[in-house]
Simulated assay, not measured.
Amino acid sequence: MGLFALACSLGFFLTAGSCVETDVGAPCNLAQNATYVGKNDPNCPSKEEANVEEHRSCFEFSPSREDLAAGGDKEYVSFGAAECDNLTCVRSKGEPVPETDEAPNGTCSGECITDQDCSSEDGKFVCRELFLDQAFLTQLRENLTEEEYARYFGRIQNTKFCARAE
């Protein structure tokens, strides 16, 4: 009887760990690249003095809503999204363009191995390669120092992320 109880307990603990809730599919915002464009604007300080928060009109941000509309076939992966558990925000191709620049333009994601890693409330996410390919990523890991790789790719170990099913 003791062996049976141990087996049941072990089975319970092994299956309990597989029921992890994720935020895959939750709305998020892609990180934007700010480019100074205020050189000829008398209301803008110099590039060195301009602050993105205080002088927002002196910068262009990409991807913008126009970029997203023009590049409907592009996919974006943005790292460092604080609103996502895995700090990864993804925009899958074909997603609707947000109504405003402030509206969420992506969904929380994370690295994955299989579709089971991408469970979400709406169930429309799969595990697939989004950028680069695994061979190229492996080549970079072999040719860059650990510091260089970490600077450009952080903790990324593979090219598969949870994204909307095509």
Rank of each mutant, 00 (worst) to 15 (best):
F4S: 04
F4I: 12
A5Y: 10
A7K: 08
A7S: 10
C8T: 10
L10F: 15
G11V: 04
F12G: 06
F12P: 00
F13M: 15
T15M: 13
T15V: 11
A16F: 14
G17S: 12
S18Q: 14
C19G: 04
E21I: 07
D23M: 10
V24K: 00
G25S: 07
A26N: 06
P27Q: 03
N29T: 11
L30C: 08
L30Q: 04
Q32C: 00
Y36H: 02
V37K: 02
G38V: 02
K39V: 12
N40M: 09
N40R: 13
N40A: 12
N43S: 14
C44I: 00
P45T: 10
K47N: 06
N51C: 05
E54M: 10
E54F: 03
R56C: 01
E60N: 10
F61A: 01
F61V: 01
S62C: 08
P63N: 13
P63M: 14
R65V: 07
E66P: 02
G71L: 10
D73T: 11
Y76E: 01
S78C: 07
F79N: 08
A82P: 02
E83H: 03
C84I: 11
L87W: 10
T88G: 01
V90Y: 05
R91M: 11
S92K: 04
E95T: 09
E95C: 06
E99L: 09
T100E: 08
E102A: 15
E102G: 00
A103C: 04
T107K: 13
C108N: 02
S109C: 04
E111H: 07
C112N: 05
D115C: 06
D115E: 08
D117Y: 09
S119P: 00
S119V: 12
S120G: 03
E121V: 14
K124R: 14
K124E: 11
C127M: 07
R128A: 13
A135G: 04
F136K: 14
F136R: 12
L137I: 08
L137F: 08
T138S: 14
L140V: 06
R141D: 02
R141F: 04
L144Y: 15
L144P: 03
T145S: 15
E148V: 06
A150P: 02
Y152H: 15
G154W: 14
G154E: 10
R155F: 09
T159G: 06
K160G: 00
F161C: 01
C162H: 05
R164W: 04
R164C: 02
A165S: 14
E166P: 15
